[in-house]
Amino acid sequence: MNKDVIVTKNISKTYGKGDVKVHALRRTSINITLGDYIAIIGPSGSGKSTFMNLIGCLDKPSSGKLFIDGTDVSQLNENQLATIRREKIGFIFQKYNLIPTLNALENVSLSMSFAGVKNKERLKRAEKLLGMVDLSKRMLHKPSELSGGEQQRVAIARALSNDPSIILADEPTGNVDTKSGSRIMGILEDINNKGETVITVTHDPNIAKRAKRILKIQDGVVSEENA
């Protein structure tokens, strides 16, 4: 039996107050185990991103508890949260979110620099990761000189750079064509096959079908969908 890497206990998220109050996520309790491959589906505005941002420690829940690798992150200060994001989580965004002034190699290396990895080792590892996503020939290109699919592969390399146990991808194929999309999903499946936990938000039922578990979110309510 694999251990739980993410445990949520009654977490909820509300935005705004009074008339404009939005219940983006309602009391959700869920366990995600190491090595899981989870697809999150649901209509637009249902709370998928809200959920991802919470378990990615980008945002704090309005109530409830969140455990990452057994640590109650709702108790952590900003510095400790940064450490969790750096060491345990690799986030892949819909809009790639690369630093525009840095080239591919530097972008991948940046997150390792926050972890204090030595320059030489960092470059070696960044080159290896970019090779893994088939970008050896694009290492010195800036984001503006790369296609959407290529940028997303740089982002995947970056997410993997500090060797996290959880990979979160919020609509990683949302901004690329089908061919690039299936290539990206292929990489994510490879990562999952190596034992990492992968959670991805998708609108594509075909992609969702290939996951081990499917979570459906509707109006902020999370439910398990039997695959």
Partner: peptide, 9 residues
Amino acid sequence: IMKAIGATN
């Protein structure tokens, strides 16, 4: 972005 990928304050 930098904070999301683990930069501290």
